[in-house]
Simulated scan of single mutants.
Amino acid sequence: MRVTEIHYPGSPPVDGYGPGFFRVGGEVREGPLLLLPAGIERWDGLGDLDSILEQSDAIDVLLMGMGPEIRPLAPEIRARLEGAGIGVEIMATPPACRTYNVLLGEGRRVAAALLPV
C-alpha cells in the first residue's frame, strides 16, 4: 500500500476535537467554531449566520456539526442558507469534522459550522 501525505489547499484541517474544543491546523480553539474560506472564527451558534452568508459566493456546501449527536436544523435557518446558494449538510460534529477534511483535501469549496462535543 502506498501512503501519501494529504495537502490541504487554503484552509487548515481539523486535527482533533474533544469536550468543548477543536484542534485546527495544530492550534487548540475552544467553543463553537466556523471554518470558512476566509479563515477560522469563533461562532455564536445556530443563530449566528452573518459570517457564513457574507462568504456565500465561496461556499458550495456547509457542514453543520450539531454536537455529539445529530439534531434537526430549524427550517428558517436552512432556508436562509439555501436561499444564499449554500448547500447544507447536518450531522453530528465528529463526522462533520471528518467529512470537512475529506472535502477540503479534494479542493472543494466547503465550510463547517461546528458545535463542540
Rank of each mutant, 00 (worst) to 15 (best):
M1W: 11
R2Y: 07
R2M: 09
V3E: 14
V3P: 04
I6D: 07
I6G: 06
I6E: 06
Y8P: 11
Y8F: 15
S11K: 10
P12K: 12
P13L: 10
V14C: 08
D15T: 13
D15M: 12
G16S: 07
Y17F: 15
G18V: 11
P19R: 10
G20Q: 10
F22Y: 07
F22D: 02
R23Q: 15
V24L: 08
G26N: 11
G26P: 15
E27L: 15
V28F: 09
R29F: 10
E30R: 12
E30V: 14
E30P: 09
E30H: 15
P32F: 13
L34C: 10
L34A: 01
L35D: 01
L36W: 01
P37T: 05
P37I: 00
G39L: 12
I40Q: 11
E41M: 08
E41W: 10
R42G: 08
R42I: 06
R42D: 01
W43V: 01
W43L: 00
W43F: 03
D44M: 00
D44P: 01
G47M: 06
D48S: 10
L49Q: 02
L49T: 08
L49I: 00
D50F: 07
S51Y: 02
I52L: 06
I52D: 02
L53S: 03
L53A: 00
L53I: 01
L53N: 02
E54T: 03
E54I: 00
E54W: 02
Q55H: 05
S56F: 03
S56A: 14
A58T: 05
D60M: 02
D60F: 02
V61M: 03
L62F: 00
L62Y: 01
L63R: 01
L63M: 11
M64C: 11
M64S: 04
G65H: 00
M66V: 07
M66T: 09
M66A: 03
M66L: 04
R71I: 12
P72D: 13
P72C: 07
A74L: 13
P75F: 14
E76N: 12
E76Y: 12
E76C: 08
I77N: 05
A79F: 05
A79M: 01
R80H: 02
L81D: 02
L81N: 00
L81V: 00
G83T: 12
A84G: 04
G85H: 07
I86V: 15
I86W: 04
I86R: 04
G87E: 13
V88R: 08
E89F: 11
I90Y: 04
M91W: 13
M91G: 08
M91D: 09
A92M: 03
T93V: 14
T93W: 11
T93N: 09
T93D: 15
P94F: 12
P95I: 08
P95M: 14
P95N: 07
A96S: 13
A96Q: 15
C97Q: 07
C97A: 14
R98A: 15
N101S: 08
N101G: 15
N101Y: 14
V102P: 13
L103Y: 07
L104F: 14
L104Y: 05
G105Y: 09
E106W: 13
E106F: 08
R108D: 02
R108V: 08
R109N: 05
R109G: 01
V110R: 00
A111M: 01
A111F: 10
P116G: 05
V117D: 12
V117H: 09
